[in-house]
Every structure is written in structure tokens, then in C-alpha cells.
Amino acid sequence: MAEYYITQSKMTALLKELASDSGMEVFGPVKKGNDVFISKMDGKTELCLDYFISVNSIKEAIFPRFEPILKYKLRSEGVELAELPPIKPLVVFGGHPCDAASIPLMKDLFSWDYKDHFYLQRLEKVVIITLACVEKDENCFCTSLGGSPHGETGSDILLERVSKDGWQAKIVSEKGKKFIETHLDFFRDTITPEKGIPKLQDKDIPVMFQSDRVKKWIEKNFDHPLWEEVASNCWSCAACTYVCPTCHCFDITDDATMWEGVRTKNWDACTLPFFTKHASGHNPRSQSYERYRQRISHKYSYYIDLFNHVSCTGCGRCSRVCKAGVNILDIVKRIDEESKKGEK
């Protein structure tokens, strides 16, 4: 099979070219302050290619912060449903394997009996170009959940750094193959692999807990005091869930004038105080630790019951953004410890 390479400058040029096409949506890494965000590009966007990990995940390209799910006209004769804008083809560049792995994970949810064609159509139309990891930090734990710093799950093309200036492009899916063939001019250069380019192996990110043991503990310990202890400093914002590649909860709201309206699906979060509050005032999860327990239990237990997979890819984003000091890895490791104690 042919080998494909692409330089940084060619990649920038390719993404800019694609982003100038109004028929397409292109997402890439953009620097802001000390951090990088996966952002929607236009032809003028300045890309940043030198970063460890973006604050947000690539989730918002495929599951947008808000999107119209219904449009209607309000007429004196009654209500009339209107056309929704078509879903455009997408290119998403700049996530890591922990981002890409979340996309098929959420597919299970969005196709559970009722098919959410907004998510599924985007999934069909997206080309996900992922960067294999060359760096890690203390919050990374993908290997504990079956992931890998050079994992292919969910990607269409995986880029592995071979020189300071470029990557080798590995075709992962048919979509990826077609993408490279269509834009072959950008992938023609041959780059001789340089020495000293860091490569991250699975063993560089040690496995830190056993997720099946964690699940067993969660099943039996809903009322355990540990929950309150580990999550009492959570102040109930949604930063963790919004940067999370697998958190998928949403709200549905209407916005209308006298003549027309739109119904949108908007990100929402189980950590926010009003998420489960009934109209009567009753709130099944009224305390912040109860909401955080839901977040962890959903990922590490309930999701497995439904779809046979942990709903976490070990990217560590939630821990990095949380300034209240809630650290998911610490908590899951702690649960694993408790579980081991129980086994003895």
C-alpha cells in the first residue's frame, strides 16, 4: 500500500482551502491565550499546530453546542412545519485518539432505538483527521480504558509525527482513503523520518485501574460516603461535561417570534443544579455530590449496562478544566482501591 505524508504547511493550506468552501464545515486547532481550542474555521483562521491537547474536544463538530431540530411557521390557519438547513460535509482536524474514540461511543446512544439523524448524518459526512499523541500529562489515562496514544478508533485518518515539519498519514477508513485520494496533491511529499521525534507508546501511559472492578463497586455503593468525600468541592458548573468528548446530555428549547420559530437541541449537563428539577420543585439530585455521582456512575456503570462500553476515553479534559480540583482519575482510582479492599 502506498505511503502518504503531509507537511504542516500543506495541511494548513489544505484546511484553509476547505474552510473557504461555504459548502463545508472545517474545524481545526486555534490558539487563545496559553490554550488551544478546536474551533470552526473560515478561510482566514490562524491555525496552531504546536500544542499538547486542546481544551475542548472535537465533540462540538459532530454534536454542536446547539442545533435546530425543528422549524415552524405560526400562521393564523395554524402551525406549519418548515425545512431545516441541510447538514454539510465536515472535516475535523486536530483531535487526539481520545477524542476520536468518543465518536463511535456516542453513536450507540444516538442510535439507541430512535435514530437521531442529526448526529448520524454528521457522522456519515465527517472526515476525522487525528493526531497520534507525542506528549502526555498526569491527567492522561486512555490506556486504562482500552485506548492508546496512537489508537485508530473513530478516526478516518491518523497522522503520526515523523519530522518537525510533518506527519505520516495512515488511512483508517474508506472515508479517509477517499479524502486522501481527492486531495492527493497535498499528500504527495515524501518525508524522511527524523531521529529524535518523540513517539508515545502504550506503556508510557500506565494502566491505573480496572474499569470492571470500578463498575462493580459503583453498582453496590450508591449510598457510600466516599461520594460526598470525593465530590464535595464540586461547585456544580458544566465545564467538565462541556469539554468532555463523551458527555452528551442536552436540553430542548423553543425560540419564536409572532410568525416563526425554531426548536433547538442545546448542550446541557447533569452537573448543573437545575438539570433534574421537576416543575413541582422536587429535585431528585439536589446536592452537588449527587450530581457528580451521576456523572461518574453514568460513565462507569450505567452506560456499560446499556451499550457495553465505558463512556469515558481517558482524555483527562474534565480534570484539566476543573478549578475546584475535582479530578476524575483520582476518583476512579480511589473507587478501584475501595473495590480491591472489598475483594479481600
Partner: peptide
């Protein structure tokens, strides 16, 4: 444009 309405500002 980057505000994701996570309300971290409010909660903190």
C-alpha cells in the same frame, strides 16, 4: 464566541 455557557463563572 467561545463561551459555552458552562456557568463556571457563576458557580465559582
Amino acid at each position: 464566541s467561545r463561551c459555552i455557557r458552562c456557568y463556571a463563572c457563576r458557580q465559582a
